[in-house]
């Protein structure tokens, strides 16, 4: 695709759906969903070989949302792509609904791994990439990590193993919005120097603006050319991106918008849906 206007339209539609579904469910995580919109748009609408009509096709690329609490951005992308009806989005987190608070691979078409407990999706993504590599299969694995998530020890176990097994078919994005539940990463538990850390663990590390499609695609292209190393894309993002009053506010990590917030957010994002 790489028609940036088209991608921007999709991203905007996903943002509206994210705010609406979290409002409707009265709970969920808007901040870290909105910060990852461009990354998921680029993956699902350009980069990945996936088919919503055949979600389990063998040679499909896999995406793992390791920061599982950002489920709304994944659901918005999957609905936009056609894995299921957009009606499902607005039943998010409701009893008996398909869309769980955190991704459930058994119940939701297009979800490749059940995640939510931080660190675990990244580890499973490494296992998937190992499987593809041992079969010399063409499919690649993509993962999205939170910045706070890298405080989990399992992230570093997995990072070490991905480099050890030379998983150059694995690309991880670190959604570096700088905030976690209790505040700034640097105040809660400093993760820096994060670039040096992943480099020291043997990764090909690329730093980008995570809202700039050109930079996202350049990183994805560079990852494909990298042999013998997994790629970590440190994507600088804005938590709550696109909704002015949510931007850079840790308070919007896990808070649902009120009716008024929703109206204001949708107005900013280009009107009612």
């Amino acid at each position: 695709m790489r028609d940036h206007n088209e991608l921007k339209k999709i991203a905007n539609s996903m943002r509206k759906n994210i705010v609406q579904m979290i409002h409707d469910s009265k709970s969920g995580h808007p901040g870290g969903s909105l910060s990852a919109v461009e990354i998921l748009t680029a993956l699902y609408f350009d980069e990945m070989n996936v088919d919503p009509q055949n979600p389990k096709k063998e040679d499909r690329d896999r995406f793992v949302l390791s920061k599982g609490h950002a489920a709304p951005v994944l659901y918005a992308a999957l609905a936009e792509k056609g894995y299921f009806s957009k009606e499902e989005l607005f039943k998010l987190r409701k009893t008996g609904a398909m869309l769980q608070g955190h991704p459930d691979m058994k119940g939701t078409p297009g979800v490749e791994m059940s995640t939510g407990s931080l660190g675990q999706g990244f580890s499973a993504a490494c296992g998937m990439a190992m499987a593809s590599k041992m079969d010399n299969a063409p499919w690649r694995v993509y993962a999205l990590l939170g910045d706070g998530e890298v405080q989990e020890g399992l992230i570093w176990e997995a990072a070490m193993s991905a480099a050890h097994y030379k998983l150059d078919n694995l690309v991880a994005f670190l959604d570096y919005n700088g905030l976690q539940i209790d505040g700034k990463n640097e105040d809660v538990m400093n993760i820096n120097p994060i670039v040096d850390k992943f480099k020291a663990f043997g990764w090909n590390v690329i730093e980008i603006d995570g809202h700039d499609f050109d930079q996202i695609f350049a990183a994805l292209d560079s990852a494909k050319e990298t042999v013998g190393q997994p790629t970590m894309v440190i994507a600088k993002t804005v938590k709550g991106k696109g909704v002015s009053f949510m931007e850079n506010e840790a308070g919007w990590h896990g808070t649902a918008p009120s009716d008024e917030d929703l109206a204001n957010a949708l107005k900013e994002l280009g009107g009612e849906m």
Partner: peptide, 17 residues
């Protein structure tokens, strides 16, 4: 390696394929 959490996580990933 000496990393039991990742031992299980990677096994989970392998099983999905």
């Amino acid at each position: 390696g000496i990393a039991e959490q990742n031992l299980i996580g990677a096994a989970a990933g392998l099983s999905t394929a």
